[in-house]
Computed example of a mutant assay.
Amino acid sequence: MTDRVTGKVVTPTGIIRQGCVEISGERITAVAEYPSIRDGNWIVPGFVDIHSHGGGGHSFTTGDADAARAAARFHLSHGSTTLLASLVSSPYELMHDATAAFAPLVKEGVLAGVHYEGPYLSEARCGAQNPEFLRDPSLDELGKLIEVGDGALRMVTIAPERPGALEVIRLLVSRGIVAAIGHSDATYDQTMAGIKAGATVATHLFNGMRAPHHREPGPVFALLGAAGVVCELVADGVHLHDGTLNFAATVGGADRSALVTDAMAAAGMPDGEYELGGQAVTVTNREARLSRDGAIAGSTLTMDAALRRAVSVGIGMPDATRMASTTPARAIGLGDHLGALIPGLRADLVELDENLQVLRVMRAGTWLP
Results as ranks from 00 to 15, higher is better:
residue 265 A to M: 09
residue 69 R to L: 12
residue 341 L to Q: 05
residue 31 V to W: 08
residue 335 G to T: 00
residue 302 T to D: 03
residue 257 S to K: 01
residue 82 T to W: 10
residue 233 L to R: 00
residue 94 L to P: 04
residue 339 G to L: 10
residue 110 V to D: 05
residue 5 V to K: 02
residue 53 H to T: 03
residue 33 E to F: 03
residue 297 A to P: 14
residue 197 A to H: 10
residue 212 P to D: 00
residue 65 A to N: 05
residue 351 E to R: 10
residue 93 E to Y: 02
residue 320 A to V: 10
residue 7 G to N: 09
residue 75 H to L: 13
residue 340 A to C: 05
residue 285 N to L: 00
residue 282 T to Q: 15
residue 176 G to C: 11
residue 216 E to S: 14
residue 300 T to G: 11
residue 30 A to V: 02
residue 260 V to G: 08
residue 40 G to D: 01
residue 208 G to P: 08
residue 363 R to F: 06
residue 168 V to S: 08
residue 117 E to I: 09
residue 131 P to A: 09
residue 154 R to H: 04
residue 255 D to I: 00
residue 116 Y to P: 04
residue 91 P to G: 02
residue 146 I to R: 03
residue 364 A to Y: 04
residue 111 L to S: 02
residue 61 T to H: 14
residue 82 T to R: 14
residue 22 E to A: 15
residue 247 F to D: 01
residue 89 S to E: 02
residue 26 E to M: 08
residue 364 A to L: 10
residue 123 E to I: 14
residue 229 V to P: 06
residue 256 R to N: 08
residue 343 P to Q: 03
residue 198 G to C: 07
residue 15 I to N: 11
residue 27 R to A: 13
residue 287 E to L: 12
residue 347 A to H: 13
residue 367 W to E: 12
residue 103 A to P: 05
residue 79 G to T: 02
residue 68 A to H: 12
residue 21 V to A: 11
residue 358 V to F: 02
residue 294 G to E: 05
residue 241 H to K: 06
residue 168 V to D: 10
residue 153 L to Q: 00
residue 25 G to A: 11
residue 134 L to F: 07
residue 112 A to M: 10
residue 137 P to M: 12
residue 117 E to L: 13
residue 240 L to A: 01
residue 16 I to M: 13
residue 219 P to S: 01
residue 178 V to F: 08
residue 32 A to E: 15
residue 188 Y to S: 03
residue 270 P to T: 04
residue 179 A to E: 02
residue 268 G to H: 11
residue 19 G to M: 09
residue 12 P to S: 04
residue 171 L to E: 03
residue 19 G to C: 07
residue 125 R to M: 15
residue 175 R to G: 07
residue 133 F to M: 07
residue 249 A to E: 05
residue 78 H to D: 12
residue 115 H to A: 06
residue 303 M to F: 12
residue 180 A to L: 09
residue 228 G to W: 00
residue 321 T to N: 04
residue 114 V to F: 05
residue 228 G to I: 00
residue 105 L to A: 09
residue 39 D to H: 14
residue 75 H to Q: 11
residue 143 G to H: 00
residue 196 K to F: 08
residue 363 R to P: 07
residue 110 V to P: 03
residue 227 A to L: 10
residue 201 V to Q: 05
residue 185 D to K: 12
residue 207 N to F: 11
residue 267 A to Q: 06
residue 364 A to V: 01
residue 230 V to W: 01
residue 200 T to E: 00
residue 242 D to R: 14
residue 162 R to L: 15
residue 39 D to A: 15
